[in-house]
Write a protein that binds this DNA or RNA. Structure first.
Length: 360
DNA sequence: AACCCGGGGGT
DNA sequence: ACCCCAGGGTT
């Protein structure tokens, strides 16, 4: 399609708004590519406010790409714990290693080379190359899709590959060669702050005179999306097992859900209404541990993007020391006060406060 | 193309 | 309780 307005006016209006209204973020102060690189990993599927404390932690722990390349996977995961999508942390470290070893410590300026880095796809490659190096690559993220679908009232499913290509072609036409990075940042900032999913602030929008959805009075109707798949329902018993003074934690498999994160040994069941002897039978069959069930927690809920998990923690005392690993990578007994040294995912982190009530 | 992969914020 | 989302990898 051809853009039904003067593109230069649109660009200027958007960039002028960004210059005066942009949020002051740490990776916008000194525009070193390493800061952009780190922030883009943190910001995948993640809000700025949520990513901020992690950015500071990582910059402090790994001031340069070389520091990041030299660290262990466990250390990266521990720093990432609580942020979710943990493959990002593993890929971040692998990408740093490849940049140091293959590209001499400098970010590759070729788009295909950037795409070859683990954890860097079309969006992140375009974002880093445009924002850090001024290369004319258009970014298409959730914000851009929402803004474009409203600007041009796109009545097609944005989850469809065709629609995605269509939006990409539009953004490429709107992109200014000279200020590609600023324009990209401005477009995403507009989506995050003004052209929000709900209650868009159209009266404050610098480009509302060109917005078809605003003209029609239905910006909230966009973007049009097909219904997501229904979430699976899972049930877990989670065992807080005490041996003398220490608790048992285990390391998850290195692929799949919560890969390589630490947790309390768990079993999947069909329901959460088992009697105590049945619960302990599961524990013995799966992990080879005999013990005494001291106390049961309440049923808790945890929702992932595609799973609705209900789980119940069980406080168990045992004299056993060794366990059957099952699908876990490894196990270790640790004092309650030391559990925070491990990368434990959020669902099980919630159990620490309950544990505090009976630790001794 | 479909599915897998977390967590917090908004309503 | 249910909605939304600053994507990439795998199959």
């Amino acid at each position: 399609m051809s853009i039904p307005f003067q593109i230069e006016s649109f660009q200027k209006q958007l960039i002028d708004w960004f210059d005066t209204h942009k949020r002051l973020l740490p990776w916008r102060q000194e525009k070193h590519w390493y800061y952009i690189f780190l922030s883009e990993f943190l910001l995948q599927q993640t809000q700025v406010e949520q990513a901020l404390p992690y950015f500071y932690k990582f910059i402090h722990a790994f001031p340069t790409i070389e520091h990041l390349a030299k660290t262990s996977e466990d250390d990266v995961l521990k720093l990432w714990a609580g942020l979710g999508y943990y493959s990002r942390a593993r890929n971040l470290r692998k990408a740093a290693q490849k940049i140091v070893e293959r590209f001499d410590g400098r970010f590759p300026l070729d788009y295909k080379d950037a795409l070859s880095l683990p954890g860097i796809g079309p969006y992140t490659a375009a974002a880093i190359l445009s924002i850090a190096f001024g290369k004319p690559h258009a970014v298409v993220d959730g914000n851009v899709i929402r803004v474009m679908s409203r600007l041009f009232s796109i009545n097609e499913d944005v989850n469809d590959g065709k629609t995605r290509k269509y939006i990409e072609s539009i953004v490429q036409k709107l992109l200014p060669e000279k200020e590609a990075g600023t324009f990209n940042e401005a477009l995403m900032e507009l989506g995050a702050v003004v052209c929000k999913p709900k209650n868009p602030r159209c009266l404050s929008c610098p480009v509302n005179t060109w917005c078809m959805a605003y003209k029609d009075g239905n910006p909230q109707a966009y973007p049009i999306k097909s219904a997501p798949a229904a979430k699976k329902r899972l049930f877990h018993y989670v065992f807080l097992i005490q041996n003398e003074t220490d608790y048992l934690i285990v390391k998850r498999p290195d692929s799949g859900l919560l890969a390589s994160m630490w947790e309390f040994p768990s079993v999947q069941t069909q329901k959460l209404t088992l009697a105590a002897p049945e619960i302990m039978t599961h524990l013995q069959k799966q992990y080879g541990i005999k013990g005494e069930l001291i106390e049961q927690d309440m049923i808790r809920h945890h929702t992932y993007s595609h799973i609705r998990l209900q789980y119940m923690a069980v406080y168990v005392r045992t004299d056993d020391e060794h366990i059957k690993l099952g699908h876990y990578q490894s196990f270790i007994w640790e004092h309650f006060n030391r559990l925070s040294d491990y990368a434990i995912h959020n669902a099980h982190k919630k159990l620490l406060s309950w544990m505090a009530s009976f630790k001794n």
